[in-house]
């Protein structure tokens, strides 16, 4: 080994202006597109093909049917999208959905506003509790929302005497009309869901709050150091998720004219599946509201198609949805790698 020799300082390197980064490769360009619009493309293809194959699929009647079915889960999935973009998860939405329905059905005897506001207040409170425990107490979202999943379900059973009591929505009331009325053939729930998605899209893409969701999910530490209100953003996002789940439950109760206690279990997983299929990364930091809408519709269409194929047991719907989910997640992984390199 040589000894310490004095080394002349390297002469000042030439001042080269900073070159721009290399222009994106084809794959780099396609990856985000696929991520964002993959579900949409598959949905369009599936709908087109099915319209030819199954005569009963391409009818307006069926479209109305499918869209109403999908509208409730869509509203739940909207809230879930926001939560997942921040890097969190909300497992409580299924229970909160059912609780919202029962509360709305019970309160509907006191009028339209009571039926609408009571579930929002209670479910909003549950969402806020989730948010506070996660953002302020630093607990894991999975655990916190698992606890409120159980809690909300228990509350629901207590309210209904373990499911023995079923509260009915008075027939012909304004609240029942909210769930059952139609405009241009499409049920009010569909229109409400679409309106919520429109608002959600603008909030996510065009407001500071929306940007901070991406920042928190992309890198919470960076967001903190940039001076963003990270804790407040987290609380708000779980509050919104609770509100939307409760509202979807109320809408569903209005449609069914009663608060059904057994619905909503496993709904959180369907919502998560729809969100992920829609291109939102489970790890947070990227995603879109429109993607979730396509994800929800895709799952709804698959279910509808399996019903159309009379010979196929409807249990296979979950198998198909699950298989599709795996395909999407594998594709996401591949795309994520393509973007990194």
């Amino acid at each position: 080994m040589k000894s310490l020799t004095t080394a002349p300082n390297p002469s000042a390197p030439p001042r080269v202006p900073q070159a721009s980064a290399p222009s994106p490769t084809g794959r780099e360009r396609i990856a985000p597109l696929l991520q964002r619009h993959g579900a949409f493309a598959v949905l369009v293809a599936l709908v087109l093909v099915s319209s030819f194959v199954f005569p009963s699929f391409g009818t307006l009647d069926n479209a109305q049917n499918v869209s109403v079915q999908a509208s409730f889960i869509a509203v739940v999935a909207l809230g879930m999208t926001l939560v997942i973009i921040t890097g969190g998860i909300d497992l409580s939405v299924g229970s909160v959905f059912a609780l919202g329905g029962v509360l709305a059905a019970w309160a509907s005897q006191y009028g339209f506003w009571a039926a609408l506001l009571l579930p929002l207040v209670v479910c909003g409170a549950i969402g806020t509790l989730n948010g506070l425990l996660i953002a302020r107490a630093g607990m894991a979202p999975f655990i916190v929302t698992l606890a409120t999943l159980l809690g909300a379900r228990g509350l629901l059973l207590a309210l209904t005497d373990e499911g023995a009591t079923t509260y009915l929505v008075p027939r012909d009331s304004a609240f029942a009309e909210l769930g059952q009325g139609t405009l241009g053939g499409f049920g009010y729930p569909v229109l409400v869901a679409l309106a919520l998605f429109a608002v959600g899209g603008v909030v996510l893409q065009r407001t500071s709050f929306g940007q901070s969701l991406f920042a928190v999910g992309g890198s919470a530490d960076a967001a903190t150091l940039m001076g963003l209100p990270v804790a407040r953003t987290r609380v708000l996002v779980y509050l919104l998720s609770g509100l939307l789940a409760g509202f979807a439950g109320a809408l569903n109760a209005a449609r069914l004219s009663s608060g059904v206690t057994i619905i909503g279990s496993g709904m959180e997983l369907d919502a998560i599946a729809a969100v992920v299929i829609g291109g939102t990364l489970l790890t947070g930091g990227a995603g879109s509201v429109s993607g979730t809408l396509w994800g929800v519709l895709l799952l709804a269409v698959i279910q509808n198609l399996i019903n159309q194929i009379g010979s196929l047991n409807s249990s296979y719907q979950s198998v198909v949805s699950g298989g599709f989910l795996i395909v999407v997640v594998v594709a996401q992984r591949y795309l994520a790698r393509a973007r990194r390199t």
């Binding site: 500071s208 940007q211 991406f214 920042a215 890198s219 960076a222 967001a223 940039m226 001076g227 930091g285």
Partner: peptide
């Protein structure tokens, strides 16, 4: 670097004061 990797350059620069 304490920025958000997945967000665009412009969004990173203006986060919180868009």
């Amino acid at each position: 670097v304490n920025l958000v990797p997945m967000m665009s350059v412009a969004r990173n620069i203006f986060l919180g004061r868009e």
